[in-house]
Amino acid sequence: MARMKFLCDAERCIECNGCVTACKNEHEVPWGINRRRVVTVNDGQEGAEKSMSVACMHCSDAPCMAVCPVDCFYKTDDGVVLHDKDLCIGCGYCFYACPFGAPQFPASNASTPGGKSSDWFGARGKMDKCTFCAGGPEENGSDAEFEKYGRNRFVRRQIAGCVQKCVRPKHCSVVTATCSQIYIASAYWFAAKARKCGAGAPPMASLITMSARRSNSREADACVDSATCRGYVGGLR
């Protein structure tokens, strides 16, 4: 079984924002939404400046999925977390819960060009997030799907747009792992979940084992192992 994960190698990311642009262009997402963003630390300090591209990390234990009052999320066979905009009521709980700020809401309708001022009490429509370019529950490749979730590149035998457009691909920015491996999407993913294991436990390790246990498959265990050995975890070598 393939497992889809994004892995960003901060050693090679040059903060070109190509992935952000590619994503925005590919899905024609509304104003005010960037499904992907690039975060830079130690800006301008030689040897210490690092950038990292972030979007929905398609969590194994997804907080958005856990808090959604209408249960509109689902996980595909490949581990991609998707949501159903027909069910979404725009309550914003997924936005509170997400460690990465992945779920976003369109800017106030009134502020968009040609938008109607019909939003009540700051209600900002339905949640939008990264789909791993896997579309949504609508018919694959249909107009309805494109309008709601963006382009379904999977069905056109393409990999995620951000990955495709990265100017320094492989061992660089965003890499899709599609072989039968889990690529542990860098350390920071797990950092947010550290509390679950209690203060004393080394957060990352317990979380990896937890995530492997949670997914309840021997394969996951093996993948975590291999990812650790390869030093993918945490972008450390």
């Binding site: 393939a2 999977f154 035998r157 393409q158 990999i159 990955v163 495709q164 990265c166 320094r168 691909p169 492989k170 061992h171 660089c172 890499v175 899709t176 792992a177 599609t178 072989c179």
Partner: peptide
């Protein structure tokens, strides 16, 4: 899966 894998491999510098 083969297709996607191939595409991923094409990304390698």
């Amino acid at each position: 899966e083969q297709e996607i894998k191939k595409r991923s491999a094409l990304q390698s510098e």
